[in-house]
């Protein structure tokens, strides 16, 4: 099965849109509640198109996010790669699950990623750590259906193109 050229247009443009969303400034109060749009989009494609979006794309997306957010290079790259690998391993099962169950999975990965980022930073107090890793996980839970609906059309177009 060859990757059709349409995938190389549609998938990067959805990733780009996710990056714009990710950088969109939120009010300070809601700041911890911003869903990890880019990670969710990468994971969406990893579940739906594992032959196209795998670890390498995840790594590149993570690296770009590192620069955009000003975090040490390699941190998001590493975490995106690991989250995508875990998703690819469970890909067949995930594809069969309902959207809610998938949402729980991506929320779990978001929680892990966030906790790791905060621990690495090393300056967070315990309660701040809790809030700041739980909040994005919960919002990932809510954002997953949004991502699914938003990407349904591009994904259908890809399926038809096959």
């Amino acid at each position: 099965m060859r990757t059709d050229p349409a995938a190389w247009l549609i998938i990067p443009s959805t990733l780009l849109a996710a990056l714009v969303l990710e950088l969109f400034p939120w009010p300070d109060l809601l700041d911890p509640w911003q869903p990890p749009w880019l990670l969710l989009t990468v994971l969406f494609w990893a579940i739906r198109r594992p032959d196209t979006v795998g670890m390498s794309i995840a790594w590149i997306a993570g690296l770009i996010l590192d620069v955009a957010l000003g975090s040490p290079l390699g941190t998001h790259a590493l975490l995106f790669t690991l989250a995508t690998t875990m998703t690819l391993v469970a890909q067949r099962m995930l594809l069969a699950l309902s959207m809610i169950q998938q949402a729980l999975w991506v929320a779990f990965l978001t929680l892990l990623q966030q906790a790791f980022l905060l621990l690495m930073d090393g300056h967070a107090s315990a309660e701040k750590l809790m809030l700041m890793s739980l909040a994005p996980a919960l919002s990932a839970l809510l954002a997953w259906p949004v991502i699914n609906i938003a990407l349904m059309n591009p994904q259908r177009r890809l399926e038809r193109g096959r």
Binding site: M55, W59, G62, L73
Partner: peptide
């Protein structure tokens, strides 16, 4: 490879 690359980048950068 990707994990090592990430760690290498991290060391080289920060």
């Amino acid at each position: 490879v990707l994990v090592l690359l990430s760690l290498g980048l991290y060391l080289a950068d920060s």
